[in-house]
Amino acid sequence: MILLEMQVLADIAETAIFEDQMVKLLARKKYVELTQPFRVAFGTIAGLDVVEVELSHEGVVGRGECCPMAIYGQDADTTLAEIAAITPQIESGDLDRTSLQKVLPAQSARNAIDCAFWDVEAKLSGRSVWDIAGLEAPSIIPSDVTIGIMTPEETATFAAGLCGASSIKLKLGGEHDLECLAAVRSVLPDTPLFVDVNAGWTLDRLNALAPQLADAKVFMIEQPLAPQDDPQLDEYGRAVPICADESCHDRSDLDRLEGRYQYVNIKLDKTGGLTEALALAEAARQRGFGIMVGCMLGTGLAMAPAYVLASICDVVDLDAPLIVKDPAHRGVKHDGRQLHQFGADLWG
């Protein structure tokens, strides 16, 4: 792993990669539907709009995709507007992947464009994204399977079908948290298990439930409290390590997370693309954090750059291909236990 190579390349790549040639940027939204509604602490999701970006130059097309989320004050239309606002700068060659980081905030719009830059850069240079980033390309990566908030009976039935999973993520923050946890352990007593609360608990509930989660061999609790309540974690009893998701967007967050969280969940829609995601992973690792990669919802076009990041992560939560309804949207294969490396025809 040579992440420093990626950073050096980015630092010296101040000249636009298109060499003053004609560039065209197109952005569109499309709806990605789930096989069935999926409940988490903040609501139920049946599908979401994603935004796809294409950068075209001399017959070469680079693509990227993002999934704007209302919980971060974004949607597909506002994201399209953000992209449209800087399209003239990109098409004129005034912006490249490095300068983009300073023009747009670490949100979904930057993610889609950043990943399109990575894709077109790879195709124009004849190098893979792996080579540009200085990373190895594993053929398979173990990934979890997520169980949404259900009744305890539904949870047990669903878990019974996951006996081959490499790990399980159980969504909590509902009415029957401990009963659902017991339901999973009744059929999967030894499968590595972590839980995701999506900011649905109070500190009192965290401290009350964490010892029982530890007894059930839960190895991590993801985002138990709302981000604004992070200072309360100074009073957490630490029975189970915790992971920052909604509380962690980019490197600027690490100072206030240190000492409160043991893991960070890196999602490209929060970091604003693969460029900052790799930099955040390296910075977090240097500070002693465990590294997790997650995703919103998306097609294989969004999963491919997340797969690149997953190759250097401790916990991989990229099971969107298992729950999107349209087979054409899956792109990256998840066989219920692990992800399989995507082809260059998809991305990178």
Rank of each mutant, 00 (worst) to 15 (best):
G273T: 10
G273C: 09
G273F: 04
G273W: 02
L274C: 06
L274Q: 05
L274R: 01
L274K: 04
T275E: 10
T275S: 08
E276V: 07
E276K: 13
E276L: 14
A277L: 13
A277M: 13
A277F: 11
A277G: 13
L278T: 11
L278I: 11
L278M: 06
L278P: 09
L278Y: 07
A279D: 11
A281P: 06
A281I: 04
A281C: 10
E282T: 15
E282G: 14
E282D: 14
A283I: 10
A284I: 07
R285C: 07
Q286K: 13
R287H: 10
G288V: 04
G288M: 12
F289T: 07
F289N: 01
F289R: 06
G290P: 07
G290T: 06
G290S: 09
G290M: 08
I291R: 10
I291P: 10
I291W: 11
M292G: 02
M292D: 04
M292Q: 11
V293F: 03
V293M: 03
V293Y: 01
V293R: 02
V293K: 02
G294L: 05
G294W: 05
G294P: 06
G294H: 06
C295T: 09
C295Q: 11
M296C: 14
M296L: 15
L297M: 14
G298V: 07
G298Q: 10
T299C: 13
T299E: 12
T299A: 15
T299Y: 13
T299R: 14
G300H: 03
G300K: 05
L301P: 11
L301M: 10
A302V: 05
M303R: 00
M303P: 02
M303Q: 04
M303N: 05
M303S: 03
A304V: 03
A304C: 12
P305G: 10
P305R: 03
P305H: 03
A306Y: 00
A306T: 02
A306P: 04
A306G: 04
V308E: 02
L309H: 02
L309G: 01
A310R: 01
A310D: 03
A310G: 11
S311A: 08
S311W: 00
S311V: 00
S311F: 00
S311M: 01
I312M: 01
I312S: 03
I312D: 03
C313L: 05
C313A: 11
D314S: 04
V315Q: 13
V315N: 04
V316M: 02
V316C: 00
D317A: 12
D317I: 08
L318F: 09
L318D: 05
D319S: 13
D319F: 12
D319R: 09
A320S: 15
A320V: 15
A320H: 15
A320E: 15
A320L: 14
P321G: 09
P321E: 12
P321Y: 08
L322R: 09
L322K: 08
L322I: 10
L322G: 05
I323R: 09
I323N: 09
V324Y: 13
V324I: 12
V324R: 15
K325R: 14
K325W: 14
D326V: 15
P327R: 13
H329K: 14
H329R: 14
R330K: 11
G331Q: 07
G331D: 03
V332L: 02
V332P: 01
V332C: 02
K333T: 06
K333I: 06
K333G: 09
K333L: 07
K333R: 14
K333W: 01
K333S: 05
K333A: 08
H334K: 11
H334I: 06
H334S: 06
H334T: 09
